[in-house]
Design a protein around this nucleic acid. Sequence first.
DNA 1: AGTGAAAAAGCCATGTC
DNA 2: GACATGGCTTTTTCACT
Lengths: 145, 145
Amino acid sequence: MTDADEIDRRLITLLREDGRRTYSDMAGIVGLSVAAVKRRVNRLQEIGVITGFTVQVDHTKLGWGVEAFTELRYAGTTRVADIVASASLLPEVHAVYTIAGDPDALVQVRVRDVAHLQQVIDQLRAAGSIAGTKTLLVLGAWTRS
Amino acid sequence: MTDADEIDRRLITLLREDGRRTYSDMAGIVGLSVAAVKRRVNRLQEIGVITGFTVQVDHTKLGWGVEAFTELRYAGTTRVADIVASASLLPEVHAVYTIAGDPDALVQVRVRDVAHLQQVIDQLRAAGSIAGTKTLLVLGAWTRS
DNA sequence: AGTGAAAAAGCCATGTC
DNA sequence: GACATGGCTTTTTCACT
C-alpha cells in the first residue's frame, strides 16, 4: 500500500477514463492548480502507482478476431519463472497468470482464427513439461472503462 | 478486419508503448510528416481501431493486492446478457468473459484480501442462477507491454 | 504541498505544391 | 502525402508562500 490520498485516486480515475486529459482539465475538476496536479501525477509515476500510458485497441478490427484463455497444468518440477518466460515469448500471448492450485497457469491469447489457436496451443504444450491444457474460447468480453 | 496498413500498425505499437508520445516523435520514427501521422491516428480512432487512451495502474500499490479469476456455471436458462450485466455492477469486477462450453463465464476480479474475495464470490453467486463456481487465485501476472 | 506566471514545446487548421 | 506559417493550448519550470 502506498500513501495515495483521495485526490490522487480521483486523478487516477480521471486518467483511466482518458489518459490524454490535460492537466488544466483535471485541475479544474479536483480544485487544484495545474502545477499541483502535474506534480501529483509525476509523483504517482515515480512511486510506481501509474506504470505507463497506453492506448486501448479493438483487436477484432485488426483481424485478431479470436480470444481464448488456456489453462496449463505442469509436471511437478516445472518452475514458475520458466512457465512465464516461455509462454510470454509467443506474440499471440497477451497475459500469463500463475495460479495457486489447479490449474498452474492461465494464459490469455489473441489469434486470427481457430486454426491459429490450435497452433498456439501446440506451441504452449511444446514449451515446457505440460501435463495438460484446457482452453476456454471467449464468445464475448466486457472490460471496465 | 479493417484496412490498416503497416504504418498504421507501427503507430499503434508505438502508442501502446507510450500513449503520450508526441506526433512529431512518431513522425520521425515512421518517416512521415507530423500532419500525416495525426491524420492516421485520428482515422484509427474514428474507425474504432483505437478505442481510447488510458493509464496502466499498479493496483497492488493502491491496496488491492489480491487478483483472481472466477469461473461461473449457470443454470440452463440464464441469458448471457444478464450474466454480464449483473457481474459488471460489482466494482471489484475488472472483466467478464463469456465462454463457449464449460464454464459459461470467466470473471476477473481485484480485491483487497481473501476475506474480500469471499464476499465478492458470494455476491457473484447471489447475482444469478449460478450452478457452481471455481476460483483461480492469481499468484503472479505477466502482461504484454 | 500549493500558487501564479512566463518560457518552451506541442497541437492543429490552412494554404500550396 | 509533404512542407510552411501562424495562432492557440498545454507542458514545464521557477520563484514564492
